[in-house]
Amino acid sequence: MDWDIISESVPAIFSALPTTLGLVGSSLLIGFILAVLVALGALQKAWFINRPANLFVYIFRSSPLLIQIFLIYYGSGQFRQELTAVGLWHLFREPWFCAVLALSLNTAAYTAEIIRGGIKSVPLDLLEAGAAIGMKKSQIFRRITFPLAIRQSLPAYGNEVILMVKSSSLASTITIMDVTGVYKEIASEYFSPLEPLLIAGSIYLLINFIATQIIAYFERRLAI
């Protein structure tokens, strides 16, 4: 164990913490909004709405995130002209955009399944009670279905948050200098891979520990 390497890599790896948190935060936010839309789509009766929603969930849940990231990043490079023509290339040109896009779509697919499960778990008689006192459909959804579904989904969503913290490390494969990216650079710079690995691993454990506590706090608050 080389303590010099450890003491030099601590500040460097910690300086990448905002990048990792930024990736996770923005992907979770965008992914959650998408997930609600997809979950609602999947519960629609019209086939032209529920089929695409289910297909989206199937594709992103059944293939590895790594290949999704490569497909979006390197794959889009093959369509540079076309993307420039529709004015999207300046977005796809940026690794950060591609990483957040891939992570958001991926978490949206998993979260949509979680939310759909939550919505289905809401007891029918509650909805009927809402209708009986004259609530409109949108009111029933906003005041009864959605809050209950969220509470029901929270433990599963907590797992998804932890998976996202871990998944964000794959952004390092498309040049993003997150915690894992900086770890890789330090490892090759000092020709000594194990010491900085301890630091990087501890950072992820710490983030996940805090995330677990936050989710647990919300679970307690929302408990009946």
Partner: peptide, 22 residues
């Protein structure tokens, strides 16, 4: 279970890749 589920698989892979020989 806490450690393995809490750190990215990518880092576990680097750990085994670089550390197993030593």
């Amino acid at each position: 279970t806490t450690v393995v589920r809490g750190i990215p698989e990518l880092l576990v892979i680097y750990l085994i890749f670089y550390g197993s020989s030593a």
